[in-house]
């Protein structure tokens, strides 16, 4: 089994949700967001590293994230992202929507000939 088959492509729109979730666990700089997404997904999703930044800027533009320059763990000036109140609300709503989608998909894919 090669490495490619163990990582899944990201579905469109899921990167924003993953970022919101990662940042909700505590303020992070861009690279930190990437690491945390890797952590919480068990490294199972393939993320283009550069694509993270347009997504972060879009989320800040929508008022879901707030930014602030701070000092990183290795003493570097870095831009930190933090979830806003609107971001928390959006994360809850999107999580609910995601769960509905997943359960519907799972049910659909588990259907057997005799059950329909």
């Amino acid at each position: 089994m090669d490495k490619e088959s163990r990582t899944a492509e990201l579905l469109p729109g899921t990167l924003d949700l993953l970022i919101l979730k990662a940042v909700s666990l505590g303020p992070q700089h861009g690279y930190g967001v990437l690491l945390r997404i890797g952590q919480i997904t068990g490294g199972a999703l393939k993320i283009e590293q550069g694509a993270l930044y347009p997504a972060l800027y879009r989320l800040e533009h929508k008022g879901l994230l707030d930014t602030e320059w701070g000092t990183s763990e290795n003493n570097r000036r870095a831009k930190y992202y933090r979830l806003t109140a609107a971001g928390h609300k959006r994360l809850r709503a999107e999580s609910d929507g995601w769960e509905r989608l997943v359960s519907a998909m799972s049910a659909a894919l588990a259907a057997r000939p005799g059950e329909v």
């Binding site: 700089h29 861009g30 690279y31 990437l34 590293q49 550069g50 930044y53 990183s72 570097r76 870095a78 831009k79």
Partner: peptide, 8 residues
């Protein structure tokens, strides 16, 4: 920000 990402 992008340069820092590469450095990290």
């Amino acid at each position: 920000e992008l340069r820092l990402h590469v450095e990290f």
